[in-house]
């Protein structure tokens, strides 16, 4: 069985994004970029499934600029077997990404597609669900635990108020939540080895997908800033304030 793992190159998790003064977007010049953290979890889960003898090959895919090669090399260094870069400098919306991924899945016929529940740049939380719809296959979103069981996969999902377990017929699409696993760091020897693993480069046109955006962003601004209030001296003063708020 093959596992397909789509990954996205995004601003590093630890960097505070700065909004451009002209309102045209977030400034990404000279900003550290990394693999989307939820996608790292997806790569890790795929590796664990392969290590358990339940998968033969892990294919990492990214839709993005030439530099997304670095992100794919990271996935290869972690343990993916080969990679496909669908290169474009355009911003590609989740719907178009899902269409490209569907075309790749049609060629590769994976039994499982594992991807992050959302990217930490646009925070859309759509690609996995859209891909599942386009493929007419089931989806296990916000996965906390993934267990393969013959022709099906059990996914424990993080939902409001608790957890829910669903059983999905394979091929299935699973999106990862934070607590599914803790991704490994790639070791230096593996980083070296990853440089020799195959990486194919394609374009959206190779898959016949129109990536023209459906949404236009007219402005990006800073969120309203909250002003710091006052500090009180002791518990009595706090109690008085809380009484004034009507909650005590």
């Amino acid at each position: 069985m093959k596992i397909l793992v789509p990954v996205k190159r995004v601003i590093d998790y630890n960097v505070k994004p700065r909004v451009k003064a002209d309102g045209s977007g977030v400034d990404l010049t000279n900003v550290k970029m990394s693999m989307n953290p939820f996608d790292e979890i997806a790569v890790e889960e795929a590796i664990r499934i392969k290590d358990a003898g339940k998968a033969d090959e892990i294919i990492a895919v990214s839709v993005g600029p030439a530099k997304a090669q670095e992100t794919l090399r990271t996935a290869l260094a972690m343990g993916a077997d080969r990679a496909i870069l669908v290169e474009t400098d355009a911003e590609v919306e989740p719907l178009a990404v899902a269409k490209i991924l569907k075309a790749i899945a049609d060629e590769e016929q994976p039994g499982l597609i594992l991807l992050g529940k959302q990217a930490i740049d646009d925070d859309s939380n759509q690609t996995g669900q859209m891909l599942a719809a386009l493929m007419g296959r089931p989806q296990g979103t916000f996965a906390n635990t993934v267990e393969l069981d013959g022709d099906s996969v059990m996914v424990k999902r993080e939902i409001d108020g608790g957890l829910e377990t669903v059983k999905l017929a394979m091929p299935a699409i699973v999106t990862t939540d934070l607590r599914l696993n803790e991704p490994r760091y790639a070791s230096l020897p593996n980083i070296m080895k990853a440089k020799k693993k195959p990486l194919d480069t394609k374009s959206p046109a190779d898959f016949g997908v129109d990536i023209t955006p459906r949404l236009t962003t007219s402005n990006v601004s800073e969120p309203p800033v909250r002003q710091a209030g006052e500090k009180v001296a002791d518990v009595d003063a706090l109690v008085a304030k809380m009484k004034a708020l009507g909650i005590a």
Binding site: I11, P17, V19, D121, D123, L215, T217, S218, V220, E222
Partner: peptide, 14 residues
Amino acid sequence: PIYAGNAIATVTSS
């Protein structure tokens, strides 16, 4: 909200 609420985008659908 985008970028974990660190920016607010105004978007129009076509």
